[in-house]
């Protein structure tokens, strides 16, 4: 997967399809949101991408704890970073969307607060890692913390915003991805185009970072031996 190309072609095709059909395709005419419903292909896809990248990250953290293979720690870290970028973009685009439909860019909505808390927990993952200089300790504690951060995603963005009053779809009596406002015409762009397209773009950039990280690792491990031989 790391160095294959077929899924990169899917990514390019899916995103071009999303950006053309996302604007041209007809959407349900709903008051207040009007044409902004098209943000579904971009804003909501960011959160799907973030969730998938975080799931991959936590899988690699568990793999690291089971095998102590340092490579898995690099994978877990880079996938978490990719997820954080998507999460920040999701929060920013959500805020912009809310500014023109809810009436304020930030209204301390449970969904907004939950998303911020979830992201702050992930920021702490990066801070915690960088506070340790010992490689093994950093990887081990980082992996354990990453599992905790992943577990915290569920109450903060999946459960609590649905239990209390929220302006965001997915709250009480306000289902997310409801068939009344997101109908067949939108699903045909969202599921085959936006979700795989944006997610694969995140995976692509993440794999590039992983490969770069593996390269620098190789350089660091091979350099001292080279020097030893050249000086001898």
């Amino acid at each position: 997967m790391l160095r294959q190309n077929w899924w990169k072609i899917i990514c390019v095709v899916a995103l071009i399809y999303t950006c053309i059909e996302g604007f041209l395709g007809s959407v349900p005419a709903l008051p207040i949101i009007n044409e902004t419903i098209r943000n579904l292909y971009f804003h909501v896809a960011m959160w799907f991408g973030m969730m998938i990248l975080f799931i991959v990250s936590v899988v690699y953290s568990i793999k690291y704890l089971r095998t102590n293979n340092h490579i898995f720690d690099i994978y877990a870290l880079e996938y978490a970073k990719g997820g954080i970028v998507f999460g920040c973009l999701g929060l920013l685009t959500g805020s912009i969307w809310a500014g023109f439909t809810w009436g304020a860019f930030w209204s301390n909505d449970p969904k907004q607060l939950g998303a911020v808390i979830a992201l702050l927990i992930y920021f702490a993952y990066l801070v915690l890692r960088n506070s340790m200089t010992d490689m093994d300790k950093r990887a081990r504690i980082g992996a354990v913390y990453n599992i905790f951060a992943f577990a915290m995603l569920f109450p903060t963005i999946w459960i609590i915003p649905r239990m209390v009053e929220s302006l965001h779809p997915g709250g009480m009596g306000n289902p997310a991805l409801d068939s009344n406002d997101i109908d067949k015409r939108m699903r045909i762009v969202f599921w085959p185009g936006a979700v795989p397209g944006w997610t694969l773009l995140g995976v692509w950039i993440t794999t590039l970072r992983i490969r770069l990280q593996l390269l620098t690792e190789k350089k660091h491990t091979s350099e001292p031996t080279k020097k030893k031989f050249s000086h001898a």
Partner: peptide
């Protein structure tokens, strides 16, 4: 997947025409 995006219809919410682009 591309074959699927043929369904295009106009609609309005509750009879009132909603301003779209």
């Amino acid at each position: 997947w591309f074959m699927g995006f043929s369904a295009r219809a106009q609609d309005s919410a509750g009879g009132k025409p909603v301003e779209m682009a």
